Amino acid sequence: MSPKKAAAPDPARSLALLWGSHTKAGRSGLTVRSIVGTAIELADANGLEAVSMRMVAEQLKVGTMSLYTHVPGKGELTDLMFDSVHGEMYAAVDEPARQPGGWRGALEFVAERNWEVLMKHPWIHEVPTIRTALGPNVTLKYEAELRPLDGLGLTDVEMDSALTLVLTHVGGTARASAEQLRTQRESGLSDQEWWLEISPALTQVMAGMAERFPLAGRVGTAAGEHFQATLDPGHALKFGLDRILDGISLLIAERD
């Protein structure tokens, strides 16, 4: 049997919670903010699967039913968690646009802030984002990140697409970095230590493959020796971001 899927959040209830008060306390003294904060701590420590209404209630030392008077279920709680962590990104809506270096410096700043949040809260990768209810923090984030692109001659669709390209690159690289860190933690070996461990077997297998895969052998060896790892997230992030921003620069030049 396939594992039982968590109930999907009710969009209307999520939106009402996202845009409502998070500080009003109930009879138990609980607030939406305290519930969401505790859930985020659990997810940061053990992943999104570790978050349940029962576990959050245990951490808060209250009965599980007390939570349901504030949040209907895990689906809506996840929407609240997702919106909350994105409220950490910018001190003001115009912060990205105020960065030195024009639009390019602003998007580098945007990439850096998104990277920091994804690395601090890797469970974000587990949250479906295609139909996520839009909360105030996610909406402010979108507004803040679009402002540096406004007035450059790009169409609205091009502005959205350029931002999406940057954020997709950051998200993909952060996901790979999180997987690398998790693998190292679970195995107890760094990438370099792992390669040294399998090197004898790999050398034996690849001995007869040099003629068949000359580029794979040459380039893979060069990259591995340079980074001393299967992946250097910092390099991948900067290299890809620079190429993306070069492409956006060409598009802006065409519009000029």
Rank of each mutant, 00 (worst) to 15 (best):
M1N: 01
S2K: 05
P3A: 14
A6S: 15
A7D: 13
D10L: 03
P11S: 11
A12V: 15
A12T: 14
A12I: 13
R13G: 06
L18I: 10
G20D: 13
S21P: 02
S21Q: 06
S21L: 02
H22V: 03
A25Q: 12
A25L: 04
L30Y: 11
T31D: 04
V32I: 15
R33S: 10
R33H: 09
R33Y: 05
A39S: 10
A39M: 09
E41H: 08
E41G: 11
L42G: 06
L42E: 07
A43N: 13
A43C: 13
A50P: 11
S52P: 08
M53E: 12
A57L: 09
Q59F: 02
Q59G: 08
K61Y: 01
V62Q: 04
V62A: 07
Y68T: 06
Y68N: 05
T69I: 00
H70S: 12
G73F: 09
E76Q: 09
E76M: 07
E76T: 06
T78F: 04
T78L: 01
L80S: 02
F82R: 05
V85E: 00
H86T: 00
M89Y: 01
A92Q: 03
E95V: 00
E95C: 00
P96M: 01
P100E: 09
P100I: 07
G101P: 00
G102C: 14
W103C: 03
W103I: 04
R104M: 04
G105Q: 00
A106H: 01
V110Q: 00
A111I: 01
R113Q: 14
R113K: 15
W115Y: 11
W115D: 13
L118W: 06
K120P: 06
K120F: 05
P122T: 06
I124Q: 09
H125I: 02
V127R: 00
T129L: 15
R131S: 15
T132N: 07
L134G: 03
L134M: 15
G135T: 06
N137E: 12
T139A: 15
Y142M: 11
A144I: 03
A144G: 02
E145C: 14
E145G: 03
E145S: 06
L152V: 02
L154M: 03
E158C: 02
D160C: 03
S161Y: 04
S161T: 08
A162G: 01
T164S: 08
L165P: 00
L165W: 07
V170G: 03
G171F: 06
A174M: 09
S177C: 15
A178E: 14
E179W: 05
E186F: 02
E186H: 05
D191C: 10
W195N: 03
I198T: 02
S199A: 12
P200W: 10
P200Y: 08
L202N: 10
L202K: 12
A210C: 00
A210D: 01
F213P: 04
P214G: 07
L215T: 13
L215C: 05
A216D: 10
V219F: 13
G220V: 05
A223W: 10
E225T: 12
H226R: 15
T230S: 11
L231R: 09
L231M: 11
P233A: 08
A236W: 04
L237Q: 15
K238Q: 14
K238R: 15
G240R: 07
L241P: 02
D242E: 15
I244Y: 11
L245D: 04
S249A: 15
L251Q: 12
